[in-house]
Design a protein around this nucleic acid. Structure first.
Length: 263
DNA sequence: GAGATTTGACCCGT
DNA sequence: ACGGGTCAAATCTC
């Protein structure tokens, strides 16, 4: 597998994890439709990014074969092919070599990663403030992924979420697999897990905190131990019809295992 | 009390 | 000097 395929695979696994998070939220009778929507959008973003990577790869291969100019068929990914500044400090993070920008009617807070806000600033010529986030595992795992969230339009509301850098933390991979392989409930004790925005679904890197949530997780685990047939899964069960249609277009099923995705 | 967020100050490139 | 990005002390929340 080449590096592009590896990236696409990581995106798919991340989307997989988000979809599983959706599953947890529903089975715990969460009433936060907004968070559910965020996760559903994240699933779509991940798949869009994965497709974009694969399309870019094909374009690149086409370039090598016929030297034609590639078209940007990506609806979401606005990344690395943009020219960089020639020298000196980049005038903005958006000119860094690796960024992805998403625009949506709601800010993306729950995208499957754990972020820590480290700044907020009023940007000139914008009436809205920009918020700066970095991966919560910046120190622990030297993960330098960052994101910026900014409202860019009031009516209709429009938010821009820009991601910079790649996650090198192990978080997303563990997250992507744990709901499927229930043995991970034990294996992740003491290791890094995730805390999402929903107060009832909280995992921590410390064993003591994890134990505090053990009873609740046991209940979740029990739910997972119920037999669920992958063929029975339908996006419309978990998300709005509009998003569900898009997910169905990807023929995605959260009950797939990592092996299913990689084979 | 620990961890997360807020916010003014600071750094650095233009 | 200006503006975007980051730091870190103060504050807040659980």
């Amino acid at each position: 597998m080449n590096s592009c395929q590896q990236k696409a695979m990581e995106k798919l696994l991340h989307g997989h994890g988000c979809a599983n998070q959706l599953l947890i939220m529903d089975q715990t009778e969460s009433d936060s439709s907004m968070e559910r929507e965020d996760l559903a959008k994240s699933v779509l973003h991940c798949f869009s990014d994965a497709l974009s990577i694969l399309i870019d790869t094909n374009d690149h291969q086409d370039d090598q074969s016929n030297n034609s100019s590639p078209q940007d068929s990506s609806p979401v990914l606005e990344s690395s092919r943009k020219p960089l500044h020639k020298r000196g400090r980049k005038t903005s993070m958006a000119e860094s070599s690796d960024y992805h920008r998403h625009e949506s009617s709601t800010p993306i807070y729950h995208d499957g990663f754990l972020w820590r806000k480290y700044g907020q600033k009023q940007i000139k010529e914008s009436e809205y403030q920009r918020s700066y986030y970095k991966c919560a595992y910046t120190k622990d795992q030297n993960c330098e992924a960052k994101k910026q969230v900014q409202k860019i339009q009031h009516n209709p509301p429009l938010y821009s979420t820009t991601y910079f850098g790649q996650h090198i933390c192990q978080l997303h991979q563990a997250y992507a697999t744990f709901p499927i392989d229930t043995s991970d409930f034990e294996e992740h004790e003491g290791s890094h897990m995730i805390r999402f925005g929903h107060p009832n679904i909280s995992f921590s890197s410390s064993t003591s905190n994890l134990r505090q949530h053990q009873n609740h997780q046991d209940r979740i685990k029990d739910e997972y131990m119920k037999p669920v047939i992958a063929e029975d899964w339908s996006p419309s069960q978990w998300m709005s019809s509009e998003v569900a249609l898009a997910v169905e277009a990807f023929e995605f099923n959260p009950f797939w295992t990592s092996h299913d995705l990689s084979s």
